[in-house]
Structures are given as structure tokens and as C-alpha cells.
Design a protein around this nucleic acid. Structure first.
Lengths: 199, 199
DNA sequence: CTTGATGTAAACAGATCGGTGTACTTCATG
DNA sequence: CATGAAGTACACCGATCTGTTTACATCAAG
């Protein structure tokens, strides 16, 4: 069953293809990258690519699905988890090679809302928002659904602002705004964590 | 000087071209629409199109420049102007044919940050943000620059969320968040529309 | 009538697109 | 050795892309 070929390249063809998609699609855009470029970058023939994926559309969907990393599952205090998420966001916006949110970019490029990649994008964003909402429920805020949506809006807006205006400091600004919203919802966001419901 | 031709089509070729760009680029995406489709939609020959615009890239930039409507100049109270902007945002997200922000979409599609259309997009967003900042200065908030950036983030995020997740209620949520941020900055956002600087 | 600007229709260039077909190689397994 | 799965190289398909060229039509102005 185990072939020697599979031993010699333990990170095999399919994954190499998706890695190439990741770099090319994200850096240059989905529509701007042809399948020839992908197969060339992956070091395989175009025929092999089409043996693993039935079409470019399926390839795009698989590329996004691979980017949809599972939401972190920590037992830290919910408010700290939320603020950590914004810290991570800020670092991402400032990092080299940042070119916006791959899911939002796909939604911008692929006009058809029924495109498989669009479904992947919408589902992923829904998961992230549900994660926010779960943390907020644990915090006992009055309207976790609304606040989760607002935090999601802050995240998306920071990404877009960093991309369009080239202002990565939007990440930090969004984090500050999140703190303000949490505080207004009754969550004590003191860095030390001592002042519970302070004020 | 006045030709009869110019009389019979007072809204002439160039504008018709840009109107066609507006519909096609926005609804289907920039890369997905070819110049043949544009000339056909405008009812002109491709040659005429290239007599008015030197290239498709220039056409894209002109399409965005036409979308960059001047910021409203009103003498209403600044806080009401800001909230009105979010009201308008919410109605836009719910409107038929909404397909995201044309400037953000262009930034997502055109990877080269030096593309003329990218410059138009960045400049326009900068103007909107400067408008926010001007209103906030009139309100005397402590850090108008930061708050303007945060309001901008809310706007962008609501647009992206409405597009990717199909949740136009993100507009209303962003408006509520804006109210919270303003209140936290010491601006009295009277709940009713009636009470003008009441109390 | 001639000129020049502006338009049209349509063919054309040269490249690239997504996707197939075909013939050949490699190699684990029967 | 034979088979079959999986890969390669590469030509090929029809369509479409941006942009150009050619030949012709319209019409105001000298």
C-alpha cells in the first residue's frame, strides 16, 4: 500500500499545489493567476494539477478552506482572549506580505455569491463571529450577538483600511475601539485585571 | 462651435462609457469584465472607446474617480452629520445591487499598489477620513485623529461584513458602535432626532 | 468639393485563459 | 515480466484578453 514515492515526498503533490495557490492567489489575486502559473510554481505538470482538482474554481475553494484555520480554543479569560485577537490582528496588518483578507478578497473578486469559495468565506467569517459571541456570553454582556457583530466589523474594517489606505495602525485603533465597546458593555478591561466592574 | 451632433447627445460618449463601466465593473468585478463588454454595453465601437481612454487601466481609474463623490458639506451639528453618514451606510448595505465598496474591491483585485486606480482609492478614503476628523475637531474630542480612524474602520468593516457574510445589519451595528465611541469621547449623542442639543 | 474630426464595423495580432488528449516514464505490486 | 496507478512533457482546443489596423460613413466648416 505504502509506495516509496509517498515516502520520498512526505509533503506531497496536493499540499504543494495548495501551498503554491496560497502564495500566488494571495499575493497577486485569484483572477490574475492562471493555472499554468500554479502548476509551474508547484513544480508539477498541469495534467497532474487537474488530476487532483477538477477545476480552478474547486482549487480556489480548497485554497480558502486551507486558510480557514480553526478558531483558538483557550481557557484564558474571555476578555483577554478577545484583546489578544486584536493584538494578533495588529501584528498581521504590519507584517510583510500583508495583502488584505483572503476571504474578503475572494468575495470581491468572485461576483457570484453561489461560488464555492464564497460559501467557504462566509462560513469561516461566521465561525469567527460565533467565537466572539461565545466569549461575550461567558462575559455576560447584555447583547452578545450585537457586540460580536460589532467586533467582527472592527476586525474587517481594520483589515480593509490597512489594505486600501496602507494604514496598518488601523489594527491598533480597532483594538482600542474594541476595548471601549467592551467597557461600555460592562466588561472591565483593565490590563492588570484587578478592577472588576470598576467605576 | 456647437455641432449638431453635440446637441443631439448632450450626455455623450465619454460619460456613457463611464456609466457602463460603473455597472459592469461594480457588478461583475474589474478583471471579469473585458473592454469588449464595455464597448458593447455603451453601444459604441471598441475603437471609439480607445479614442477616449488610452488603456483599460486608465478606464478603471476613471471609473473609480467618478465614484469618488465629493464629501457632503453641511452646516448641521457635526455629531448629527456623522450619525447621518452611518444611517446612509445602513441603507446602502441593504439596497439592491450592493456588492461591496468599489474602492476596496479594486484594491483587492489590483495587486499592484502603484496602480492608478489604487491611488484613486487610497486618496478617496483619505478624504472621507479627513472629513470625519474635521467633524470631530469641531466637537472638540480629545483625539480626533484616532477616533476618525476608528469611525473609518467601522464603515469599512460594515461594508465588508455585509458583502462577505451577507449581513447588511452590520451597518446598523456599526452605527451603534459609532454612537458608543462618540459617547465615550465625551460627545452627547442625543437619542431622539428631535432633541437638538437639548437639555 | 475638400478637409478633418468623429464615429462605425470588423478583421486582425499576439498572448493567455481553463481544460484535454496523448504518448512516455517510473515504480510498487501481482 | 505484466499491470496499473501516478507522474511528466507537450501539443492542442476553442475562447477570450487587450489593443491595433483597415476601410468606410457622417457631417460641420473652409
Amino acid at each position: 500500500m505504502t509506495t516509496r514515492k509517498a515516502e520520498k515526498q512526505r509533503v506531497p503533490v496536493r499540499q504543494r499545489i495548495l501551498q503554491s495557490c496560497d502564495q500566488l492567489f494571495y499575493q497577486q489575486g485569484i483572477q490574475a493567476v492562471g493555472v499554468d502559473a500554479i502548476s509551474a510554481h508547484a513544480g508539477i505538470s498541469k495534467r497532474t494539477l487537474y488530476n487532483h482538482f477538477p477545476s480552478k474554481d474547486a482549487l480556489i475553494a480548497a485554497y480558502l478552506a486551507r486558510r480557514a484555520s480553526p478558531v483558538p480554543d483557550s481557557d484564558a479569560p474571555p476578555d483577554q482572549q478577545i484583546l489578544k485577537a486584536f493584538d494578533w490582528l495588529g501584528r498581521w496588518l504590519e507584517s510583510d506580505g500583508f495583502r488584505g483578507c483572503p476571504f474578503a478578497n475572494a468575495a470581491a473578486e468572485l461576483a457570484d455569491p453561489a461560488h464555492p469559495a464564497r460559501r467557504v468565506a462566509a462560513a469561516y467569517k461566521g465561525e469567527r463571529q460565533a467565537w466572539f459571541e461565545a466569549q461575550l456570553e461567558r462575559l455576560g454582556v447584555p447583547d452578545p450577538g450585537l457586540l460580536a457583530l460589532q467586533l467582527m466589523v472592527l476586525v474587517e474594517g481594520a483589515i480593509t483600511t490597512a489594505l486600501v489606505q496602507g494604514r496598518p495602525e488601523a489594527g491598533r485603533a480597532a483594538g482600542e475601539a474594541a476595548k471601549t465597546l467592551l467597557r461600555a458593555a460592562g466588561v472591565a478591561t483593565e490590563p492588570g485585571g484587578e478592577g472588576q466592574a470598576g467605576g
